[in-house]
Design a protein around this nucleic acid. Structure first.
Lengths: 335, 335
DNA sequence: ATTGTCCGTGGTATCGTTTCCATGAAACCA
DNA sequence: TGGTTTCATGGAAACGATACCACGGACAAT
């Protein structure tokens, strides 16, 4: 592999001049420029990015901390990030946090300024000391689907979104509305609790009682959704509608209902959450969370901070919308 | 950020000794080791990976070329790769090739030895000159879901898998079997044509005629699947079964059939391909392609080559299996 | 006692860039 | 014409690590 000095020697110029050509400095005579470019072409020279990074003290890489990058939600966010990066040739260093240990390790290593120029944290609550480290290292951070102190972030008001979903069920005439969601877990989502709060708030506003047996917090898998449904169907008064905190769980609920001969939406209305791709094909009424948009906007915010480090931090919020499809309708068995 | 010489000065040793501690050389007195480690701890020293890479001439990064990383298939493969990498701290540089231009750019840049220590290419046919460049640069490559010359690869026999799917339909009694697939496109899949060949071969072996109107090559989206189905239903003799080259398209076919009041599997049997996660919840009979396993094994093969560069290239194949669910059954309308 | 071997260690060159400073020629102004 | 400014250019230093070489002391062998 030819180096910059090979090019310099071959073109009969100094390395400084070649470097200037490389970086598009206008301090180069057209004739020299031409000659150097020809030599670079002829030798098949390509600058060594590692050396560039070492010298310029910029890694040209963005670190993404994401829980379970296999999950639909995160795949969409990542796709958005990719788009947001556009044609800038920032590399993406994706760290998938699957276990608590991963998280600790990633948080311990990340934010070293020589590793990445900036960091995107998706759906995770950063630890206080990490935030502090980012601050002293002057490493820009943008949170996606999370909020924390004064850090830049792009997120969705899950509480309002959940309230909207539950109000939809209420408007259809449902009075026995259950919730299946994931427990608020400091390890992953920063405030999945928002959905729970929204649910409670709407029920309270409607003067409906709180029924603990209608609130199941379980894992984010279809299987867990099915299991939760089964226990609810055993109740003396089963719910007529369920608000489910993720489409994954909702899929399990739909399947379980089919299994038990429970008609949707006549016997049971279901609202999901996220609007992942599958939901459309299952005709699932759900809350559309702008996953892709959050990723894109998050990347844009980070790029802006990277270009203009003194810029103020901003907290942005996007709107979730309700997508009404075929799994919700008025309750048939009452009144 | 403290550097190696800060540590050396503070510990009263030479930089060489600190480097040896860093790299776990046994040529260090326990006492010195202890002292250096303490200083590293106290100063919060972390070696600069960029400098390490420059000097050691290894980028400690694996490049992954993947078409459309948002697609289910590739997400699964990537997850497998992540697992295959295990606890080695190789970074992953993912290049998503969405357009022809991306492909050219990625292929032009990739394989420079200072960029990545090794390359994984997923479902793409590498250009001849690229293969040549990898060879001269001594950059190990492993193809995933593709085969090419003598390069190491891990793949699936799509022809045999397709044959198996079509034979299943044949065994159920179907005689009018159609194909919906994607055109063989040199840009992405290396031999999606394998499925077509398998389909043709089984029909020929069964003495069934080739009907061009039963073979639709279209895009890999549900919408395209729906459209293809609609044109087939217009035929004077519509097929009683369809072998679909991807679950994405099959989803569209299922939806289209529902829309047209066409019962599955009584009026129409459907076999998909890949067995993506959704398929289970749609009860779709499909061919299970070991996506995750290909990714994992591909990463393992690359790691082995990285550790032992002289190792011979290997071509491995995994078996696809037929997963029979609820979308296939005997034809009802004939005999 | 002398030679040889081995091992822990320090120092320096090196990886391939960018950045900065010095230099000399050309251009400008009076 | 003399002096100042401008500007393209060459070359050295630096980024932060690793690798190599040389050196001195300890210990074994003669």
């Amino acid at each position: 592999m030819p180096t910059i000095s090979d090019v310099a020697r071959e073109a009969g110029v100094g390395v400084g001049t070649v470097s200037r050509v490389l970086n598009g400095s206008r301090q180069v005579t057209p004739a020299t420029l031409q000659r150097v470019k020809e030599v670079m072409e002829r030798l098949g020279y390509r600058p060594n990015p590692i050396a560039q990074r070492l010298r310029s003290r910029r890694s040209h890489t963005i670190e993404v901390l994401v829980p379970l990058f296999t999950r639909h939600f995160y795949v969409e966010v990542l796709r958005g990030i990719e788009m947001g990066l556009g044609t800038t040739d920032y590399g993406l260093l994706i760290r998938s946090i699957e276990k608590q240990a991963d998280r600790d390790r990633a948080f311990a290593n990340s934010g070293a300024h020589d590793y990445a120029d900036g960091v995107l944290i998706v759906s995770l609550a950063p630890a206080d000391d990490l935030v502090e480290r980012f601050h002293v290292a002057q490493c820009p951070v943008v949170l996606i689907d999370a909020e924390y102190g004064g850090l830049s972030s792009i997120s969705v008001d899950h509480e309002a979104a959940a309230a909207m979903a539950v109000r939809h069920l209420l408007a259809l005439g449902h009075r026995r509305i259950a919730l299946i969601d994931r427990p608020q877990d400091p390890f992953t989502a920063t405030y999945s609790g928002g959905r729970y709060a929204g649910y409670r708030q709407v029920l309270a506003a409607a003067g409906l009682p709180v029924r603990p047996e209608y609130e199941v917090l379980t894992k984010f898998t279809p299987e867990a959704g099915t299991a939760a449904l089964y226990t609810m169907l055993e109740l003396p008064q089963p719910p007529t509608a369920i608000f489910v905190g993720s489409d994954s769980q909702a899929i399990g609920v739909i399947q379980g209902a089919r299994q038990r001969g429970c008609r949707i939406p006549e016997d049971l209305s279901i609202v999901g959450y996220n609007d992942v791709e599958i939901s459309r094909y299952l005709d699932l009424t759900t809350v559309r969370v702008p996953m892709y948009e959050m990723g894109r906007r998050g990347a844009e915010l980070l790029l802006a901070r990277l270009a203009e480090p003194e810029q103020a931090q901003v907290q942005e919020r996007l709107q979730a919308t309700l997508v009404v499809r075929a799994t919700t309708g008025p309750p048939a068995d009452e009144r």
